[in-house]
Amino acid sequence: MADSPAPADQPACEGSAEDTLLPAELRAWMQLLAAAGAIEQRLRSQVKESLGVSHDEFLVLCLLAEQPGAALRMSRIAESLGRPKTRLTYQIACLQHADLVTRRSVCGDKRGIEVALTDKGRRLLREVSPALAETVTEAVHGMIDDRQCESLRGLLPEVAEASVAGSDTAV
């Protein structure tokens, strides 16, 4: 066992693509998850400080911000964010208490609830979004090198091929 290059419980050094057990798409997916987790971690404190809400509540605000002038049903928000409806109810109540969202019954559906950003919520998002976007950009640049970027393109081979074809024609 003394001759072994790496202990059995430790990962081996990085090898060639042929040495890996995972196909390129799964490796890319794992890198994407790692990058998203790192970005989320960097955003948490900044979101709390600048907006006074949790990261999950921030995601609700962002989803609503992409629906200018319109409300979304709570069931649609839960589905879009992959959150349990019971947890979302608590988050919406917190956002409503902070006067960042309103909620109302859906006309003709006793059980349906729609949520919309308030003017205060829109104004606050507009004010803090540039700094939060910069944090995301910095985190991405710090997390993803050229090799990983190429690997992530493996998730969408058609897009990568179109990008290469487009750059060939532009030359």
Rank of each mutant, 00 (worst) to 15 (best):
H141G: 04
V136F: 02
L132M: 06
P5H: 07
R104P: 01
V171E: 14
E134L: 11
S167T: 14
S151L: 15
T86A: 04
R122L: 03
V140M: 06
S151D: 10
M30C: 12
R104Y: 06
R44V: 14
E127G: 00
D9Y: 13
E49Y: 01
S4M: 12
G142K: 03
A139D: 00
H141S: 10
R111Q: 12
A8R: 11
V47R: 02
Q91Y: 12
P7K: 13
M74R: 14
A28E: 09
R27S: 04
V60N: 04
C62Y: 00
L22D: 09
A28T: 06
E18M: 06
M74Y: 00
T137Q: 10
R27A: 05
G82I: 03
Q31H: 14
V128Q: 05
L132V: 05
Y90E: 12
F58G: 01
G166T: 02
A116I: 03
S163H: 11
C107F: 07
S16I: 08
R147L: 08
L72V: 09
I113K: 14
L32A: 15
C107Q: 15
L152C: 08
L132Q: 05
G121R: 02
L22I: 00
Q67W: 07
V128Y: 00
V53K: 01
V171S: 12
L125Y: 09
L59E: 13
L64P: 11
Q148Y: 07
D146N: 09
A131F: 05
G108M: 05
P23Q: 01
R104F: 07
L63M: 07
I144Q: 03
G121Q: 02
S167W: 13
P11L: 14
P7G: 05
T135Q: 10
D146V: 15
S105C: 11
L132T: 03
A24E: 10
A98C: 08
T137L: 12
I39E: 02
L124G: 01
D109T: 08
G154K: 03
M30P: 00
